[in-house]
Simulated assay, not measured.
Amino acid sequence: MKIILTQEVPGLGTPGDIVEVKDGYGRNYLLPQGLAISHTKGAEKQVATIKRARDAREIRDLDHAKEIKAQLEGLSVKLGARAGDGGRLFGSVTAGEVVVAVKAAGGPSLDRRRVELPSVIKSLGAYNVQVKLHPEVVAKFSVNVVPAAK
């Protein structure tokens, strides 16, 4: 099934891309969620408009992404989490919690879907986190997981 993406789908493409997907994935997930539209001749005209808007936005966003990268790399992020005696967390740290901690540390607002954790964070300590701000810009910073105040 050919579809046209209207929003970014990780591992599949960006808005305006024409992609071939399995029928069930397209019909049951992408189309109902509004992430894509069916591929037709009229929709191809929309693709050109979407791509022009994206190209104009990316040129602007590249500089903006570099500014955000500079902010993130100079940031000291501490994340409080409940932990047991051995330093093992009750649960794990999620990308959403990292985004909240960055905002609390005075950093910029981030999209949790762009945050890439190195692995599952289940203990106290310092971890390196990546944020994919732009196809050409990846910011790396450290998150220090500390015990939360009781």
Rank of each mutant, 00 (worst) to 15 (best):
residue 3 I to R: 04
residue 4 I to K: 05
residue 4 I to V: 10
residue 6 T to H: 06
residue 6 T to D: 07
residue 8 E to V: 14
residue 9 V to C: 13
residue 9 V to M: 08
residue 13 G to W: 00
residue 18 I to L: 14
residue 20 E to K: 12
residue 24 G to A: 13
residue 25 Y to Q: 10
residue 26 G to Q: 04
residue 27 R to K: 10
residue 31 L to M: 07
residue 32 P to R: 01
residue 35 L to S: 11
residue 35 L to A: 11
residue 40 T to W: 03
residue 46 Q to G: 12
residue 50 I to S: 11
residue 53 A to L: 10
residue 54 R to F: 00
residue 60 R to S: 13
residue 61 D to K: 07
residue 61 D to S: 11
residue 64 H to P: 03
residue 64 H to E: 11
residue 67 E to R: 15
residue 76 S to H: 12
residue 78 K to L: 12
residue 79 L to P: 02
residue 84 G to F: 00
residue 85 D to Y: 05
residue 86 G to K: 15
residue 86 G to E: 15
residue 92 S to I: 00
residue 93 V to P: 02
residue 95 A to L: 06
residue 95 A to G: 11
residue 96 G to R: 10
residue 102 V to C: 07
residue 104 A to N: 12
residue 104 A to M: 07
residue 105 A to D: 05
residue 106 G to W: 01
residue 107 G to Q: 09
residue 111 D to L: 02
residue 117 L to M: 05
residue 119 S to R: 13
residue 123 S to Y: 00
residue 124 L to A: 08
residue 129 V to F: 00
residue 129 V to W: 04
residue 131 V to P: 06
residue 137 V to D: 06
residue 138 V to L: 14
residue 138 V to T: 13
residue 141 F to Q: 10
residue 144 N to V: 12
residue 145 V to M: 10
residue 146 V to L: 11
residue 149 A to F: 02
residue 149 A to N: 07
